[in-house]
Amino acid sequence: MNIFRFAGDMTHLISVLVLLLKIYATKSCSGISLKTQELYALVFLSRYLDLFTNYISLYNTLMKLVFIGSSLAIVWCMRMHHAVKRSYDKEVDTFRHYYLVLACFVLATLVNEQFTLREVCWAFSIYLEAVAILPQLVLLQRSGNVDNLTGQYVFFLGAYRAFYILNWIYRYFTEQYFTRWIACIAGIVQTALYADFFYYYFISWKNNAKLQLPA
């Protein structure tokens, strides 16, 4: 594992911790899209089907468990926890995420490495992860103001994707590794979705001002 991959995994982990911290400390999930969180839970459940059949390393197994567990816990909190669910911005979180699921499923049955249940599920999870942030970005755009922890959550998620691209470039030159073209294309699309957010994040950081997205 190279430094970029590790940095990517760590920023991903930090993003999850920031989100859990926000929900736990403020007992509020305002500014967080439940639809995006549901999509991530689906992403991890369909990607890590190989959890018990395909052992790679203790690190991989633990990280998979953390991502499945934390995404389910966040969805549970936002739906069931009496205080947290009251702060959920239901009226603003109206993205039709079922269409994303349907489109990614159709794409996965058409474009995959092998037409087997596991490979179709893997491709599905890759496509769905690429677009899963959309309901969250739309929610932030609509509400305009972004609180500190929510901004940091999205920033770390975007950083995770950027590090993964550096990881692939590194692996391409050091290992002649370029078999994961489905993941690479989807990963580039996914990272590009953050470009706009990053732009405003850095402006607010440079001016030491609160993060605001233009309507």
Binding site: R5, I56, N60, E113, Q114, E119, W122, Y164, R180
Partner: peptide
Amino acid sequence: TEPSAVKDEL
């Protein structure tokens, strides 16, 4: 068909 490669990334 080629066997699908090991997926060592998360």
